[in-house]
Design a protein around this nucleic acid. Structure first.
Lengths: 157, 157
DNA sequence: TATTGTTATACTCTATAACTATA
DNA sequence: TATAGTTATAGAGTATAACAATA
């Protein structure tokens, strides 16, 4: 089989699919995940987990439901995610007497230490995400994604 | 509890997370999935399945492995995905005598009919994806996503 | 009655390794 | 030996409904 045959066989026409935002968004996300895991491989943490730790650190005592809503994580999933972080000793749950249905979250000392140790990694990944784009392009991409994500109002009011 | 209390409790600071391409990409993708499922709810098909049907239609006789590579779907997952499409009667598998290890795919009559019936839906979703963006912004977003997805060479050469 | 979070279930997508059959 | 695809298994993420506790 000649190289030409191989090339013609392996060339796949995607047609208008290359103009599908959904499709291209998926390809871009797969690429970013590769870069995330390169950076966080040694830290043993997933994107969702790191984001949750980050936001709890910025909002100590945040209500679990509010966290789920703003991060677009389903409550049932958030329960399991938080359980994992609690059993890892990174997060502490607190039920306030004022409303004993709710659960408030804060970092433990270990969680704060973990975040401090990995803050530099996060910022490095932050830069690596933009690999192949100019700084202006990175800013514009971010602006367009935000506009798209927030268009037509919040999905979870 | 006053409205002020509620507001201050429910307002969550995301900090630099809003400048994370990975995070904003996820939010944008969730939004696009909502729109996809609004459009395709009645067709009973998933994004991955529709993309595979679309690309097989454009490349009749495409090798299953080549399809998996270009769509960034793992071979093990592609096997199951194709099995589903075959059992739905939309896709036909063909093992060529020249290389009996490989599997080539093409649409059945039903698959072609399905695609024809839903082509308009796809193009409608295509437009809905861009809701909230101007036409120029849609084009620019697509360009930046492609640049990001393809930067640093193909991940699966 | 409504809200907060939990449990249980199921399905998709992903990841990995071991396996077959062919080359 | 290498390649194409399959099977099996595991885990993350998502979706849904039913549920308990509380308001």
């Amino acid at each position: 089989m000649s190289a030409l045959d191989i090339a013609s066989e392996e060339t796949v026409d995607l047609g208008e699919m290359t103009e599908s935002l959904g499709f291209m968004l998926r390809l871009a996300q797969l690429r970013l995940f590769e870069r995330f895991f390169q950076g966080f491989a040694e830290a043993g943490v997933r994107p969702g987990e790191f984001t949750v730790l980050w936001v709890i650190a910025l909002n100590p005592g945040v209500r679990q439901g509010a966290l789920a809503r703003v991060l677009r994580i389903k409550p049932a999933h958030m329960t399991k995610l938080v359980q994992r972080l609690v059993s890892d000793g990174l997060v502490r749950r607190h039920v306030p007497p004022r409303d004993r249905r709710s659960v408030r979250l804060e970092l433990t000392g270990a969680g704060q230490g973990y975040l401090d140790r990995n803050r530099a990694t996060f910022l490095r990944v932050h830069d690596a995400e933009r690999e192949g784009l100019t700084e202006a392009e990175g800013r514009e991409l971010l602006r367009l994604l935000a506009k798209l994500a927030l268009a037509g109002g919040e999905p979870c009011p």
